[in-house]
Amino acid sequence: MRDLLSINDLTKDDALEILDTAVQLSALSDSSNRKFPTLRGRTVVNLFFEDSTRTRISFEAAAKRLSADVINFSAKGSSVSKGESLKDTALTLQAMGADAVIIRHGSSGAPAQLARKRWIDGAVINAGDGTHEHPTQALLDAFTIRRHLKKDQGDLAGLKIAVVGDVLHSRVARSNVLLLQKLGATVVLVAPPTLLPVGVEHWGAQVSFAIDDVIAECDAVMMLRVQKERMEDLFFPSEREYARNFGLNAARIAEMKESAIVMHPGPMNRGLEITAEGADSKRSVIVEQVANGVSVRMAVLYLLIGGATSRDLAAQIGDQS
């Protein structure tokens, strides 16, 4: 594994290796607020073309706990039309010798372009691209589900997980559908038809238009953020109607299985896709997801640049010649 661009880059074994590594790292991190020397001398760049404080600080904490040097590069609105191009930004980072570039970009496929065109030698980690994917979010979600429902062991076979809300525009949903199914879980997508992509039938997930039809049989319910602007684009008539039909409220939580958990990638729109009772209920693992995010991202960084990288190998070949 050289880059992490999409869940499709991972085999099931790769995914389990990341989760198992994260389990060890989270145990070590729990025992004390420790720092590992593992990535000492490695440079990790947070290249964020979109604001996302929580994802950025999660990666930053992960990299720092592994002793990497972290450079935060915020390049909002950068594109051909406005300011520096992605390519020139990448070449700048390349000149700085980045071992890993963590990229968040509003355009689907931007991380894949960085990696494919090899504007950067270092590992490229997708921290969310447009409406495409957000693989580390899916990994931390799978980690959280496995911790609660599988005691940190094995895959997710036998579990049923609902992903509720704006599937059409959600990179979190795309990565989760791929990963959770890869790990053996059954995924059911719950959304109004306007917020499901044409072609969703090829995803292998079940589709439902009614949260009440599925909530009682799910082991985990993952609520997606719904942006209020979507209303203006005619995806749903009003916030009230959306919340009534697809929001997670106390009555729906009461229908859930004893062991079932409530998840949300954040940031939440309380009152729209989730009520305060939903967000703060005993079933909610939303805060835990944040802590697990650091462990999972440490695992990803360790596995991508903790061992010999292509840059190291190139340097060795260079030494020999």
């Binding site: 290796e17 198992d20 590594t21 060890q24 790292l25 070590l28 590992f36 020397p37 593992t38 592994l66 360790y302 596995l303 903790g306 061992g307 010999a308 990288t309 190291d312």
Partner: peptide
Amino acid sequence: MYRDDLRMRAPRPL
């Protein structure tokens, strides 16, 4: 995580 030869081979499982 403390080895000094991590970069000489693929990452080892923890």
